[in-house]
Simulated scan of single mutants.
Amino acid sequence: MFPYEGKLQVLRSPNAYSPSEIREIMNLARVLHLEVIPLVQTIGHMEFVLKHKMFSHLREMKEFPNSLIPCKKESVDLVKSMIDQIMAVHKDLKWLHVGSDEVYHLGESEESKKLLAQTQNTADSLFLSHVKAVANYIVTSYPNVKPIIWDDMLRNISEEKLKESMLSQFVELMIWEYNANFKVDGMMLQIQKYQRSGFSHMWFASAFKGATGAAQSLTPISYHLANHLQWLKVAEALSRDSIQLHGIALTGWQRYDHFSVLCELLPVGLPSLAVCLQTLKNGVFSEKEEDFVKKCLGFKTLRVNFIR
Protein backbone atom coordinates (compact mmCIF):
# COMPACT_ATOMS: atom_id res chain seq x y z
CA MET A 1 0.00 0.00 0.00
CA PHE A 2 3.02 2.32 0.10
CA PRO A 3 3.61 4.34 -3.12
CA TYR A 4 7.13 3.19 -3.90
CA GLU A 5 8.81 5.01 -6.79
CA GLY A 6 11.62 4.51 -9.28
CA LYS A 7 13.15 1.04 -9.29
CA LEU A 8 10.82 0.07 -6.46
CA GLN A 9 7.64 1.13 -8.23
CA VAL A 10 6.86 -2.51 -9.07
CA LEU A 11 6.21 -3.07 -5.34
CA ARG A 12 3.31 -0.61 -5.34
CA SER A 13 -0.22 -1.99 -5.22
CA PRO A 14 -2.59 -0.62 -7.91
CA ASN A 15 -4.66 0.92 -5.10
CA ALA A 16 -1.71 2.12 -3.01
CA TYR A 17 -1.97 5.32 -1.02
CA SER A 18 -0.61 8.43 -2.69
CA PRO A 19 2.06 10.50 -0.88
CA SER A 20 -0.57 13.21 -0.27
CA GLU A 21 -2.93 10.64 1.28
CA ILE A 22 -0.18 9.46 3.60
CA ARG A 23 0.52 13.04 4.63
CA GLU A 24 -3.20 13.51 5.31
CA ILE A 25 -3.22 10.37 7.48
CA MET A 26 -0.20 11.70 9.38
CA ASN A 27 -1.85 15.10 9.90
CA LEU A 28 -5.11 13.54 11.09
CA ALA A 29 -3.13 11.35 13.51
CA ARG A 30 -1.50 14.45 15.04
CA VAL A 31 -4.88 16.17 15.43
CA LEU A 32 -6.17 13.08 17.26
CA HIS A 33 -3.01 12.86 19.40
CA LEU A 34 -1.96 9.62 17.72
CA GLU A 35 1.57 8.70 16.73
CA VAL A 36 2.23 6.76 13.53
CA ILE A 37 4.91 4.04 13.50
CA PRO A 38 5.41 2.59 10.00
CA LEU A 39 6.40 -1.05 9.59
CA VAL A 40 8.58 -2.15 6.68
CA GLN A 41 9.68 -5.74 6.20
CA THR A 42 13.46 -6.06 5.89
CA ILE A 43 14.31 -9.80 5.82
CA GLY A 44 11.26 -12.04 6.43
CA HIS A 45 7.74 -11.63 5.02
CA MET A 46 9.31 -10.21 1.87
CA GLU A 47 6.86 -11.89 -0.54
CA PHE A 48 5.57 -8.56 -1.80
CA VAL A 49 9.11 -7.81 -3.00
CA LEU A 50 10.61 -11.18 -3.88
CA LYS A 51 7.61 -12.36 -5.91
CA HIS A 52 8.72 -9.96 -8.65
CA LYS A 53 11.14 -11.32 -11.25
CA MET A 54 13.54 -8.40 -10.92
CA PHE A 55 14.13 -9.25 -7.24
CA SER A 56 13.69 -13.03 -7.30
CA HIS A 57 17.47 -13.62 -7.32
CA LEU A 58 17.52 -12.26 -3.75
CA ARG A 59 15.40 -15.12 -2.37
CA GLU A 60 17.00 -17.21 0.36
CA MET A 61 15.25 -20.23 -1.14
CA LYS A 62 14.56 -20.13 -4.86
CA GLU A 63 11.12 -21.75 -4.60
CA PHE A 64 9.79 -19.43 -1.87
CA PRO A 65 9.69 -15.62 -1.99
CA ASN A 66 9.39 -15.05 1.74
CA SER A 67 12.97 -14.48 2.96
CA LEU A 68 15.76 -12.23 1.73
CA ILE A 69 19.35 -13.45 1.35
CA PRO A 70 20.92 -11.59 4.30
CA CYS A 71 24.56 -11.76 3.24
CA LYS A 72 24.24 -10.03 -0.14
CA LYS A 73 25.09 -6.34 -0.37
CA GLU A 74 22.29 -5.95 -2.90
CA SER A 75 19.81 -7.17 -0.28
CA VAL A 76 20.89 -4.52 2.19
CA ASP A 77 20.89 -1.85 -0.52
CA LEU A 78 17.31 -2.82 -1.44
CA VAL A 79 16.18 -2.50 2.17
CA LYS A 80 17.94 0.86 2.51
CA SER A 81 16.10 2.17 -0.57
CA MET A 82 12.75 1.04 0.87
CA ILE A 83 13.51 2.71 4.19
CA ASP A 84 14.61 5.96 2.53
CA GLN A 85 11.39 6.23 0.54
CA ILE A 86 9.27 5.56 3.62
CA MET A 87 11.20 8.08 5.71
CA ALA A 88 10.84 10.73 3.00
CA VAL A 89 7.05 10.67 3.39
CA HIS A 90 6.77 10.06 7.15
CA LYS A 91 8.21 13.09 8.91
CA ASP A 92 9.06 13.49 12.61
CA LEU A 93 9.05 9.76 13.41
CA LYS A 94 10.36 8.47 16.73
CA TRP A 95 10.24 4.79 15.80
CA LEU A 96 10.38 2.65 12.66
CA HIS A 97 9.40 -1.02 12.88
CA VAL A 98 11.62 -3.16 10.64
CA GLY A 99 9.78 -6.47 11.08
CA SER A 100 12.40 -9.27 11.19
CA ASP A 101 9.99 -12.01 12.27
CA GLU A 102 9.41 -15.51 10.90
CA VAL A 103 12.49 -15.64 8.68
CA TYR A 104 12.08 -19.06 7.13
CA HIS A 105 14.80 -20.95 5.17
CA LEU A 106 17.51 -18.81 6.73
CA GLY A 107 20.94 -19.90 5.52
CA GLU A 108 19.65 -22.11 2.68
CA SER A 109 20.69 -20.05 -0.36
CA GLU A 110 23.92 -20.94 -2.14
CA GLU A 111 25.41 -17.61 -1.06
CA SER A 112 24.53 -18.20 2.58
CA LYS A 113 25.75 -21.81 2.54
CA LYS A 114 29.04 -20.72 1.05
CA LEU A 115 29.54 -18.08 3.74
CA LEU A 116 28.60 -20.51 6.51
CA ALA A 117 31.06 -23.09 5.18
CA GLN A 118 33.92 -20.59 5.08
CA THR A 119 33.45 -19.01 8.48
CA GLN A 120 32.33 -19.79 12.01
CA ASN A 121 29.01 -18.11 11.28
CA THR A 122 25.67 -19.77 11.90
CA ALA A 123 22.21 -18.98 10.55
CA ASP A 124 21.68 -16.94 13.72
CA SER A 125 24.81 -14.94 12.90
CA LEU A 126 23.48 -14.18 9.43
CA PHE A 127 20.24 -12.90 10.92
CA LEU A 128 21.90 -10.78 13.60
CA SER A 129 24.38 -9.31 11.14
CA HIS A 130 21.65 -8.30 8.68
CA VAL A 131 19.35 -6.78 11.30
CA LYS A 132 22.24 -4.91 12.86
CA ALA A 133 23.27 -3.51 9.45
CA VAL A 134 19.71 -2.32 8.78
CA ALA A 135 19.35 -0.83 12.25
CA ASN A 136 22.74 0.85 12.07
CA TYR A 137 21.75 2.45 8.77
CA ILE A 138 18.58 3.85 10.36
CA VAL A 139 20.20 5.30 13.48
CA THR A 140 23.05 6.74 11.41
CA SER A 141 20.91 8.24 8.64
CA TYR A 142 18.00 9.23 10.89
CA PRO A 143 19.43 9.86 14.38
CA ASN A 144 16.06 10.70 15.95
CA VAL A 145 14.49 7.39 14.90
CA LYS A 146 14.74 4.15 16.86
CA PRO A 147 14.26 0.80 15.05
CA ILE A 148 11.89 -1.79 16.51
CA ILE A 149 12.00 -5.52 15.68
CA TRP A 150 9.82 -8.51 16.53
CA ASP A 151 11.53 -10.78 19.03
CA ASP A 152 10.71 -14.31 17.82
CA MET A 153 13.95 -14.89 15.89
CA LEU A 154 15.92 -14.06 19.07
CA ARG A 155 14.15 -16.49 21.36
CA ASN A 156 16.43 -19.43 20.68
CA ILE A 157 19.64 -17.40 20.38
CA SER A 158 21.82 -17.69 23.45
CA GLU A 159 22.15 -14.85 25.91
CA GLU A 160 25.90 -14.74 25.27
CA LYS A 161 25.46 -14.42 21.52
CA LEU A 162 22.91 -11.64 21.92
CA LYS A 163 25.29 -9.76 24.20
CA GLU A 164 28.15 -10.26 21.77
CA SER A 165 26.07 -8.93 18.86
CA MET A 166 25.37 -5.67 20.75
CA LEU A 167 22.04 -5.56 18.94
CA SER A 168 20.45 -3.98 22.02
CA GLN A 169 22.37 -0.78 21.27
CA PHE A 170 20.51 -0.39 17.98
CA VAL A 171 16.96 -1.72 18.36
CA GLU A 172 14.04 -2.03 20.73
CA LEU A 173 12.22 -5.36 21.02
CA MET A 174 8.54 -5.95 20.45
CA ILE A 175 7.71 -9.23 22.19
CA TRP A 176 4.67 -10.93 20.71
CA GLU A 177 2.38 -13.58 22.09
CA TYR A 178 -1.15 -14.11 20.81
CA ASN A 179 -2.21 -17.28 22.63
CA ALA A 180 -5.11 -16.93 25.03
CA ASN A 181 -3.45 -18.63 27.99
CA PHE A 182 0.27 -18.30 27.50
CA LYS A 183 2.47 -18.99 30.52
CA VAL A 184 3.31 -15.80 32.40
CA ASP A 185 6.31 -17.40 34.12
CA GLY A 186 7.73 -18.54 30.79
CA MET A 187 7.28 -15.07 29.32
CA MET A 188 9.03 -13.52 32.32
CA LEU A 189 12.01 -15.83 31.85
CA GLN A 190 12.26 -14.77 28.22
CA ILE A 191 12.04 -11.08 29.11
CA GLN A 192 14.69 -11.48 31.81
CA LYS A 193 16.99 -13.14 29.25
CA TYR A 194 16.57 -10.13 26.96
CA GLN A 195 17.20 -7.80 29.87
CA ARG A 196 20.46 -9.56 30.74
CA SER A 197 21.40 -9.35 27.05
CA GLY A 198 21.23 -5.56 27.21
CA PHE A 199 17.66 -4.81 26.10
CA SER A 200 16.15 -2.29 28.50
CA HIS A 201 13.38 -0.84 26.28
CA MET A 202 10.65 -3.22 25.19
CA TRP A 203 7.15 -3.42 23.78
CA PHE A 204 4.52 -6.14 24.03
CA ALA A 205 2.32 -7.27 21.16
CA SER A 206 -1.08 -8.88 21.59
CA ALA A 207 -3.90 -9.39 19.08
CA PHE A 208 -7.52 -8.29 18.97
CA LYS A 209 -8.40 -10.14 15.76
CA GLY A 210 -7.03 -12.47 13.12
CA ALA A 211 -4.68 -14.56 15.23
CA THR A 212 -7.03 -17.53 15.67
CA GLY A 213 -7.12 -18.85 12.12
CA ALA A 214 -5.96 -18.00 8.62
CA ALA A 215 -9.52 -18.11 7.27
CA GLN A 216 -11.34 -16.93 10.41
CA SER A 217 -14.69 -15.21 9.77
CA LEU A 218 -15.81 -14.14 13.24
CA THR A 219 -13.65 -12.85 16.07
CA PRO A 220 -13.75 -14.91 19.31
CA ILE A 221 -13.76 -12.04 21.78
CA SER A 222 -13.19 -14.22 24.86
CA TYR A 223 -9.99 -15.63 23.36
CA HIS A 224 -8.47 -12.19 22.82
CA LEU A 225 -9.73 -10.96 26.19
CA ALA A 226 -7.87 -13.83 27.86
CA ASN A 227 -4.70 -12.92 25.95
CA HIS A 228 -4.80 -9.36 27.27
CA LEU A 229 -5.48 -10.45 30.84
CA GLN A 230 -2.31 -12.54 30.65
CA TRP A 231 -0.34 -9.57 29.33
CA LEU A 232 -1.61 -7.47 32.24
CA LYS A 233 -0.13 -10.06 34.61
CA VAL A 234 3.21 -9.80 32.81
CA ALA A 235 3.12 -5.99 32.98
CA GLU A 236 2.37 -6.15 36.70
CA ALA A 237 5.31 -8.47 37.29
CA LEU A 238 7.57 -6.18 35.25
CA SER A 239 6.88 -3.24 37.52
CA ARG A 240 9.38 -4.76 39.95
CA ASP A 241 12.12 -4.98 37.33
CA SER A 242 14.26 -2.32 35.64
CA ILE A 243 12.70 -2.58 32.19
CA GLN A 244 11.13 0.36 30.41
CA LEU A 245 7.92 -0.82 28.80
CA HIS A 246 6.87 1.57 26.03
CA GLY A 247 3.46 0.00 25.51
CA ILE A 248 1.49 -2.80 23.91
CA ALA A 249 0.61 -3.18 20.23
CA LEU A 250 -2.86 -4.62 19.67
CA THR A 251 -2.24 -6.27 16.34
CA GLY A 252 -5.18 -6.90 14.03
CA TRP A 253 -4.16 -9.43 11.41
CA GLN A 254 -5.52 -9.12 7.88
CA ARG A 255 -3.83 -12.29 6.62
CA TYR A 256 -1.09 -14.64 7.73
CA ASP A 257 1.16 -13.91 4.78
CA HIS A 258 1.08 -12.15 1.43
CA PHE A 259 -0.51 -15.09 -0.38
CA SER A 260 -3.05 -16.12 2.26
CA VAL A 261 -6.78 -15.49 2.21
CA LEU A 262 -8.12 -12.71 4.42
CA CYS A 263 -8.83 -13.26 8.10
CA GLU A 264 -11.94 -11.65 9.58
CA LEU A 265 -12.22 -8.05 8.46
CA LEU A 266 -11.79 -4.98 10.64
CA PRO A 267 -15.52 -4.19 11.20
CA VAL A 268 -16.04 -7.72 12.59
CA GLY A 269 -13.11 -7.24 14.97
CA LEU A 270 -14.08 -3.81 16.36
CA PRO A 271 -16.10 -5.19 19.32
CA SER A 272 -13.09 -7.27 20.30
CA LEU A 273 -10.83 -4.22 19.99
CA ALA A 274 -13.16 -2.23 22.26
CA VAL A 275 -13.22 -5.02 24.85
CA CYS A 276 -9.42 -5.39 24.80
CA LEU A 277 -8.84 -1.64 25.10
CA GLN A 278 -11.18 -1.37 28.09
CA THR A 279 -9.44 -4.34 29.68
CA LEU A 280 -6.02 -2.75 29.30
CA LYS A 281 -7.29 0.62 30.51
CA ASN A 282 -9.05 -0.69 33.62
CA GLY A 283 -7.04 -3.82 34.36
CA VAL A 284 -10.19 -5.96 34.34
CA PHE A 285 -13.23 -6.71 32.22
CA SER A 286 -16.41 -6.94 34.26
CA GLU A 287 -20.09 -6.11 33.76
CA LYS A 288 -19.17 -2.41 34.17
CA GLU A 289 -16.71 -2.51 31.27
CA GLU A 290 -19.14 -4.54 29.19
CA ASP A 291 -21.89 -1.96 29.69
CA PHE A 292 -19.50 0.80 28.65
CA VAL A 293 -18.47 -1.04 25.47
CA LYS A 294 -22.10 -1.79 24.54
CA LYS A 295 -23.02 1.86 25.05
CA CYS A 296 -20.11 3.08 22.91
CA LEU A 297 -20.87 0.66 20.10
CA GLY A 298 -24.66 0.93 20.31
CA PHE A 299 -25.02 -2.79 21.03
CA LYS A 300 -27.79 -4.41 23.05
CA THR A 301 -25.78 -7.57 23.64
CA LEU A 302 -22.12 -8.51 23.52
CA ARG A 303 -21.04 -12.13 23.41
CA VAL A 304 -18.25 -12.27 25.94
CA ASN A 305 -17.66 -15.05 28.44
CA PHE A 306 -16.27 -13.40 31.54
CA ILE A 307 -12.89 -14.61 32.75
CA ARG A 308 -12.47 -14.11 36.47
Rank of each mutant, 00 (worst) to 15 (best):
K193L: 11
K193P: 07
K193R: 14
K193V: 09
Q195V: 11
Q195C: 13
R196L: 12
F199M: 08
S200H: 15
H201A: 10
H201E: 13
H201Y: 14
M202L: 15
F204Q: 09
F204H: 09
S206A: 15
S206I: 08
S206W: 04
A207D: 03
A207R: 01
F208W: 12
F208Y: 15
F208V: 06
K209M: 08
K209E: 05
G210P: 02
G210H: 03
G210T: 05
G210L: 00
T212H: 10
T212N: 11
G213M: 08
G213T: 08
G213E: 06
A214I: 13
A214M: 14
A215H: 15
A215I: 14
A215P: 05
Q216R: 12
Q216G: 09
Q216K: 10
Q216D: 11
Q216L: 13
Q216Y: 04
S217Q: 14
S217V: 10
L218Y: 11
L218S: 13
P220T: 07
I221Y: 00
I221R: 00
I221W: 00
S222T: 15
S222R: 02
Y223K: 04
H224C: 00
H224W: 01
H224E: 01
L225V: 07
L225N: 00
A226R: 10
A226S: 12
A226G: 06
A226W: 02
N227A: 08
H228F: 05
H228V: 12
L229C: 05
L229D: 00
L229S: 02
L232A: 06
L232H: 02
L232G: 05
L232T: 04
K233L: 14
K233E: 15
K233D: 12
V234T: 05
V234E: 02
V234W: 03
